[in-house]
Amino acid sequence: MLKIENLHAEIDGKEILKGLSLEVATGEIHAIMGPNGAGKSTLGYVLGGRDGYEVTQGSVTFDGQDLLELAPYERAAAGLFLGFQYPVEIPGISNVQFLREALNSQRRARDEAPLSGAEFLKLARAQADALGMHQDMLKRPVNVGFSGGEKKRNEMVQMGILAPKFAILDETDSGLDIDALKAVGDGINRIMRAPDKSVLLITHYQRLLDYVQPDKVHVLADGRIVRSGGPELAQELEREGYGELAA
């Protein structure tokens, strides 16, 4: 589904990704771990198409298309979802308003009929319920005044509503209490565990991986994938740290 080859990317002239290669097959869940500052969030932003993140070399193919050619909204319409490490607060725009616009923009881009207000509300309520997010929060401005954990839940509600093919979840587990971690883990499994979907989970902790079993685990250090393995690699890292991998 996603194939990254020799990806080099820089911010403000500073190279952050330094020849990263990674392939995620359809139906698989991969975890990326790695020390702070390794470039994990940068990878997410580059895949999402954020302004200022300049790709200088390499390629990214998503479902057979050149992902880097697409504007961010086209990537979303193509089925890419980016769960933010720090979800952004947007005063003055309610969650429902934002998500309905987002979903309908995606649907229009795919030549699908937009959802009516009532249809959308039904969908949004069901997803909020499934994630244990209070209905009232749908009406509140996007992430404004949400706690860290509520923001992460809201990311999952958004993912449930937008139903992407491929999700990059950047530390969706950090800042969560035990119940929220379980809710988010269950959410990822429910929404994304399917033969036609894939996930790239960026995390620092084994505990999310107890809920969401990865097919493969990669270590990203200094802008490159330096090691890949099965689920046991995450346990090994948790025991032993990144040590010389990150050196």
Binding site: G48, Y73, F84, F98, L99, V142
Partner: peptide, 16 residues
């Protein structure tokens, strides 16, 4: 800019 990218990443064209 953060907010702009957040909205775009969810599927809104830039002008929207």
């Amino acid at each position: 800019k953060q907010a702009l990218f957040y909205l775009e990443s969810r599927g809104l064209p830039e002008t929207r």
